[in-house]
Design a protein around this nucleic acid. Structure first.
Lengths: 210, 210
DNA sequence: GTTATGCAGTAACATTGGTTACAAAGGATT
DNA sequence: AATCCTTTGTAACCAATGTTACTGCATAAC
């Protein structure tokens, strides 16, 4: 565990802190598509992501979903921190987008380390900062962009996260994450194909030039 | 200054912390409609709101606005904190919605107090937590609600913030904050009036029963 | 009083996105 | 091959929202 930690967090955490994390943290290897957090869950630990990616989703009262953003190596879930400190329920759902490795840290340590380690303070505040900005970007996209622009962003981001130019999703799945309908997504994808930006196949999409 | 601070923050801050704030903070009395923060500003201080209300706005590349949420007594601006720590530019605009009293605290103190005072740590984390949740609520509204529901929410919130049942805005102003168009807002307001929920007048709206 | 300006009401129309319905194609199963 | 299920393509239609254009009205400015 210590080498994974050092590799991902060695540059930002002091050696003493790394050692403490190794002491109390538990390493987890999570396959793709696994649900880490459900809406309404009480949260007992804070995840430090070593590798892979986690998608964070929001759901409304009717069960309609919306993708908020992805977490990657070196990230943690600010929402989780917020929940831990406030002792409240999770407002979001977290699902592994790819196979992921992460370390769970018990929340009791959070405040202790905030006092003890400057690097931890920086890390926590930076996380909040980044997550706030990601949320703002998502909000911009929903408030100001039309569906075609949102779809292009979605495809780009998905390709980046999955480190390749193939997106293994059905049109229906994409529609869920953008909170739209399958027919609308098919329509727009077809238009992108006709423009030469992508190639459509059954169960996957190949990105050519977005 | 000390009595205003004690009144608004006495319940959550230790006496020592209150004293420190009095030492280094500067009291400001800001009239309605004053711009406190512009997008792109570097931020030198952190505001603690004593009374009044501040609206936080987002803007896209075309200059289109969107109201994110309001800050009230006892609140602070998490975005500001995030910017201070990260030494980055403001992503948002802040304008007083009503006459407001606030105390500006130099950012250098932020980290110092985070180590020194448990109550300050709690305050900072709570602020982040609340602001994240407000952002999520705003996002829900944009993603999942139709314009009529958003308008009703807007009117309710505005009436609450202004502590009354009169809303002193033109249809055009409302349209800006909801990122819609004047004609659409007029149309929906007229419908609400016909339902007996509100009364329309030139330059103001009276809330009857929403 | 007359004029100018800004605000609100309304109609007609365009566009976007969502819905329903059905056909066609690809895979898997038998 | 025959059947079944899932995915995708497409047409026709509808509802919500945005746009343009014009009107009347209230108030401020002259």
């Amino acid at each position: 565990m210590i080498q994974e930690l050092t590799e991902s967090y060695g540059a930002i955490f002091e050696k003493d802190l790394i050692n403490e994390i190794v002491q109390v943290g538990t390493f987890k290897d999570v396959p793709e598509g696994h649900k880490l957090i459900e809406i309404g869950d009480y949260i007992k630990g804070m995840p430090l992501l070593i590798s892979g990616a986690i998608k964070i989703l929001r759901e409304d009262n009717d069960g309609d979903e919306l993708l908020l953003y992805y977490l990657e190596k070196g990230d943690t879930c600010s929402m989780t921190m917020a929940c831990c400190m406030g002792d409240s329920k999770s407002e979001i759902r977290a699902i592994t987008e790819t196979d992921s490795k992460l370390i769970m840290v018990p929340i009791q340590k959070m405040e202790e380390w905030t006092v003890k380690y400057k690097s931890w303070r920086n890390f926590v505040f930076n996380s909040y900062h980044e997550r706030l900005n990601e949320l703002l970007t998502t909000l911009d996209s929903i408030a100001f962009d039309k569906m075609d622009a949102r779809l292009i962003n979605y495809l780009k981001e998905k390709a980046r996260i999955n480190k390749g130019n193939i997106i293994n999703n059905t049109h229906q799945e994409i529609a869920y994450e953008l909170h739209s309908s399958r027919v609308v997504i098919s329509r727009l994808l077809k238009k992108l194909e006709q423009m030469g930006s992508i190639e459509l196949h059954r169960n996957y999409i190949k990105i050519l030039d977005l």
